[in-house]
């Protein structure tokens, strides 16, 4: 499949990556080549897609007990943050509410 620059841009936006115009062109070509290659899969006759089950279904999944363990100190939670304010992580003003 031939990816257009617009498609690359759309995918980059989904991935929150900004690309330079050169990168757009470059990746459009390169990804098209990779997709052409992986597309040979489409020539295979395959059963219809279903739930991919490889594990034994009769075994109940072991789950974790609901027992609290101490959280880490707030300073430690913030220790790797590029920016923080008081006990909060700090980011540029969020203008659009919700998601």
């Amino acid at each position: 499949m031939k990816l257009t620059k617009e498609q690359v841009l759309h995918v980059a936006r989904l991935a929150s990556l900004s690309l330079t115009p050169e990168e757009e062109a470059h990746f459009a070509g390169e990804l098209s080549g990779i997709l052409d290659y992986v597309e040979t899969l489409n020539r295979l006759e395959l059963p219809p897609p279903g739930l991919h089950v490889s594990e034994d279904m009769s075994e109940p999944t072991p789950l974790a007990a609901d027992m609290p363990r101490p959280s880490i100190p707030t300073e430690e939670a913030l220790s790797n943050a590029p920016d923080h304010s008081g006990s909060f992580f700090r980011v540029p003003r969020i203008l659009e509410e919700g998601r």
Binding site: D66, R69, T74, G86, S87
Partner: peptide, 26 residues
């Protein structure tokens, strides 16, 4: 529940900011 869905930090309202976190929920 007493704890979060995927880590064992407390599931509690009203704690000081970022006091109920661990590497998993961060």
């Amino acid at each position: 529940t007493r704890t979060k869905l995927f880590c064992r930090c407390e599931n509690r309202f009203g704690a000081p900011p970022n006091a109920l976190t661990c590497p998993v929920c961060l």
